[in-house]
Computed example of a mutant assay.
Amino acid sequence: MLKVLFAPLQGYTTGIYRAAHAKIFGGIEAYYAPFLRIENGHPRERDLRDLETPAGVPGSPRVIPQVIANSVEEFKILADALLQKGFTEIDFNMGCPFPMQVNRHRGSGLLGDTQAVQAIMGEIARQSATETARFSVKMRLGQDSPDEAFALLPILNDTPLTHITLHPRLGKQQYKGAIDIKSFEKFYRECRHPLVYNGNITDVSQINEIERRYPNLAGVMIGRGLLARPSLASEYRTGATESKFISKLFQMHQIIFEHARQTFQGDSQILAHVQSFWDYLEPSIPKKTFKRIKKAGKLSVYADAVSTLLPENQHE
């Protein structure tokens, strides 16, 4: 059975979301936190704070921080900050396709710079040799061409990595267009590290097919598919559809909702942190309920709309 890793998504897979998901749905080998970045020469404090499991939430999901950098100097600053916080596993992002990062030579914008990547991999090798931490890489096939990934593969193969996660699209595609399965299969054959597949997984049948087709694959990383179906990983592990999906969805939401009410002030601030929970769930709940939730401008209206998901309120 493949490991299922929860991909990081800025603004969605926050510390409280990860903790609530682990408590209610589970089935995840590890949760990858949204990337830590440099801001004004230092690691961004908000990103560092979000790596901590919120107080008062039972359980402690396995969280692996991710960093994004355009040079070995940036990488060192970020890695050192995480090591000082006690993290021993770090993921390096060479896959983010968003222009704000790509234009700063980060994420998939770094894939064409063999020299910079080699310097960062050298630092990973140095830190791995001292056993201070273990490192993995999340990447795309390239920013403009799959040739970029294959030019880097010998360097990556020679670097002590726990695994590589590959999204078989180009950065310039962002999340649109066809997946390049031929290039993925070539990478799969030539990669000497455990390989994790990432991209467009939305149901259990796809995971089963990937497992059948690539028997040496180490796992799958899923982001939007889990946001849309939080039970996806547990359903894959059990082989059964979650019969109490809506009830568990409500429970998960309540953990996030209570945390927001204790952390933020005023209806608008609280709603800004909870309404996004539903963004990918529109197909799974009644359309009328979804519209009421997203349009709510007051907490009382919002809470009433969410409560209609409970079985005893389904007649409303």
Score class of each variant (00 low, 15 high):
residue 177 G to F: 08
residue 145 S to N: 08
residue 141 L to F: 10
residue 179 I to S: 12
residue 135 F to V: 08
residue 132 T to A: 02
residue 167 H to F: 07
residue 110 L to Q: 08
residue 108 S to Q: 09
residue 96 C to M: 08
residue 122 G to P: 00
residue 131 E to T: 11
residue 168 P to S: 14
residue 185 E to L: 09
residue 109 G to L: 05
residue 101 Q to Y: 12
residue 153 L to G: 00
residue 127 Q to V: 12
residue 95 G to L: 07
residue 180 D to H: 14
residue 146 P to D: 13
residue 112 G to R: 06
residue 102 V to A: 02
residue 143 Q to F: 12
residue 116 A to M: 06
residue 143 Q to P: 03
residue 170 L to R: 00
residue 147 D to S: 15
residue 139 M to S: 07
residue 114 T to H: 09
residue 95 G to Y: 08
residue 98 F to T: 14
residue 156 L to Q: 07
residue 158 D to H: 12
residue 159 T to A: 14
residue 148 E to G: 06
residue 156 L to V: 11
residue 109 G to S: 03
residue 182 K to G: 10
residue 173 Q to D: 14
residue 141 L to A: 06
residue 135 F to T: 05
residue 167 H to C: 01
residue 116 A to Y: 01
residue 167 H to S: 04
residue 127 Q to K: 11
residue 133 A to R: 02
residue 140 R to F: 05
residue 119 A to R: 12
residue 99 P to C: 01
residue 119 A to C: 05
residue 148 E to M: 03
residue 108 S to Y: 00
residue 169 R to S: 00
residue 99 P to A: 13
residue 118 Q to V: 10
residue 102 V to R: 09
residue 114 T to S: 02
residue 122 G to A: 06
residue 131 E to L: 02
residue 135 F to L: 07
residue 126 R to W: 04
residue 105 H to C: 05
residue 94 M to A: 03
residue 154 P to F: 04
residue 130 T to F: 04
residue 175 Y to L: 02
residue 181 I to F: 12
residue 103 N to E: 15
residue 181 I to H: 14
residue 180 D to W: 02
residue 175 Y to G: 09
residue 109 G to H: 06
residue 127 Q to A: 03
residue 126 R to M: 04
residue 110 L to Y: 07
residue 164 I to E: 06
residue 174 Q to G: 01
residue 150 F to H: 00
residue 123 E to R: 05
residue 102 V to Y: 04
residue 115 Q to V: 14
residue 154 P to N: 09
residue 104 R to H: 14
residue 140 R to H: 01
residue 107 G to P: 02
residue 124 I to V: 15
residue 182 K to Y: 15
residue 151 A to E: 11
residue 128 S to C: 04
residue 159 T to F: 10
residue 127 Q to E: 11
residue 140 R to K: 02
residue 103 N to C: 10
residue 129 A to L: 08
residue 147 D to P: 01
residue 119 A to L: 00
residue 156 L to N: 06
residue 167 H to G: 06
residue 150 F to E: 04
residue 145 S to Y: 00
residue 112 G to V: 02
residue 150 F to Y: 10
residue 117 V to P: 02
residue 182 K to C: 05
residue 121 M to V: 03
residue 150 F to D: 01
residue 133 A to H: 02
residue 134 R to C: 06
residue 154 P to L: 01
residue 117 V to L: 04
residue 132 T to H: 00
residue 132 T to E: 13
residue 126 R to Q: 13
residue 153 L to V: 05
residue 171 G to E: 12
residue 168 P to N: 15
residue 137 V to T: 09
residue 133 A to L: 00
residue 151 A to N: 04
residue 158 D to N: 14
residue 128 S to N: 07
residue 99 P to S: 13
residue 181 I to M: 13
residue 151 A to C: 07
residue 96 C to E: 11
residue 137 V to Y: 08
residue 135 F to K: 09
residue 166 L to Q: 00
residue 132 T to F: 07
residue 122 G to E: 11
residue 97 P to N: 14
residue 112 G to A: 12
residue 111 L to H: 04
residue 184 F to A: 09
residue 170 L to M: 01
residue 159 T to I: 04
residue 107 G to S: 08
residue 174 Q to C: 08
residue 165 T to I: 05
residue 97 P to D: 14
residue 113 D to Y: 11
residue 159 T to G: 06
residue 165 T to S: 15
residue 132 T to L: 01
residue 164 I to Y: 10
residue 115 Q to Y: 12
residue 176 K to H: 14
residue 123 E to D: 01
